[in-house]
Design a binder for these strands. Sequence first.
DNA 1: CGGCTGAAGTTGTCAGACAACTTTATAAGA
DNA 2: TCTTATAAAGTTGTCTGACAACTTCAGCCG
Lengths: 237, 237
Amino acid sequence: MADKRSSNLAEKVLARLGADIRGGRLAPGDRLPTEQELTSSMGVSRTVVREAVAALRADGLVVTRRGSGAYVAENPTGPFRIAAPPSGSLAAVLDVMELRLAVEVEAAGFAAERASRKQVVQVRGALRDIDRALKSGDGAVAEDFAFHRAIAEATGNAQFPRFLAFLGSHVIPRQSVRLSVDTPVERRAYLERIQNEHHRIVDGIVAADPVEARRAMRDHLTRSLERYRKLAEGSKP
Amino acid sequence: MADKRSSNLAEKVLARLGADIRGGRLAPGDRLPTEQELTSSMGVSRTVVREAVAALRADGLVVTRRGSGAYVAENPTGPFRIAAPPSGSLAAVLDVMELRLAVEVEAAGFAAERASRKQVVQVRGALRDIDRALKSGDGAVAEDFAFHRAIAEATGNAQFPRFLAFLGSHVIPRQSVRLSVDTPVERRAYLERIQNEHHRIVDGIVAADPVEARRAMRDHLTRSLERYRKLAEGSKP
DNA sequence: CGGCTGAAGTTGTCAGACAACTTTATAAGA
DNA sequence: TCTTATAAAGTTGTCTGACAACTTCAGCCG
């Protein structure tokens, strides 16, 4: 329960206060103990206490008012984090990929429903960029990512590209692994099939057909997911 | 660009370093300037610098190694945040609700695909809890939330309930507003229709029919979204 | 060439002090 | 008595100096 592992006293104080807040012992609006009280009750210096409070403030869990005190935020819900890779690696990545699938499928649907002309142009341009990169030889992971982002932006809802960028940074590093295991000829066929799926997604968006756009995106990402799942099973049965 | 508004010197340093990292001027793995360098270059005390670095560490942007220095994290993507309500209130909430819709629709699908027997029992139990709460008179917002969470947990993917809980804390406060504007009789009809939608979702999950589960969930949330959208337009045209 | 030692550099922690601001208590005035 | 001004105490923000713990690297010794 008490997670006070070794180095960094500030983390101990941080863990303690964070637990008090999340556990409800400190309700929203409540005032935290003063820095002096914390220094004496936890046996640390004021520097340590202040660093812990600074971290809490960075997470939006508390707000401080000079001359008055530090108070628990009205909505003490920390930001959304995803555990670092070394946790449950393979299975964890699959979980994140499923979350990404959910958001991208609906993004394709919203894009088909209400993308502006300019946004559609952007999506088509991104698709052409992939085509070009493929013809010029090497993989197009950057272009692929830009394509998906263009669709997210075509929803007109800024949260979609924002969240996708966030998820991408937690998934991308390993999807490059997958490509390198295939033989050159298999890889070529794989990339072409992927691109066909991309075209189908764009067709759905251009036709303003949300059902088709969603289905195409779901097929696209499900296939990617299945491939990764197979790879995960193969390395740990 | 330079966002160094008044109080809190630590925030100035924080903004500066954060911008340097996100802007690429400090690449992953790079070592940050030493605390001494920062104190002299920014004209602040070491206390301030340390608080700023503590905040960066809390966000996972840097890691510090005692005796060596502070380094930019390999994946310097901060956590996912959602701006506080007072920003673009109405439209912003709609954006978040759409994100929630995306995740919940797919969650219903995954739940239908692979929910364990125990998880299905939980979902049905949550549905019954809403029924009971409705019969006993007053609204069932807590039970409604528990129902949606049960579905998210039935996916077997912990990220779904986690992310939903995160989003919920940013949307919930205002959906209670909507209920209070209706007249008692309208409210009754509204709640019953909602509950019918809930039943349809559960039917899809129990029948292990992902397509139907998704469609039911999408209809359910789209209706809620449309209602809110109308309310938003009515108060600002 | 390899390993050891020591010095320099850096972060972690402590202590004390003052400034800036808020809150509360006190006193003065109407 | 109530209101207002003033003073006092309390709290966070910032600065300064110091030492401990650890890392890194150069130089020395074998």
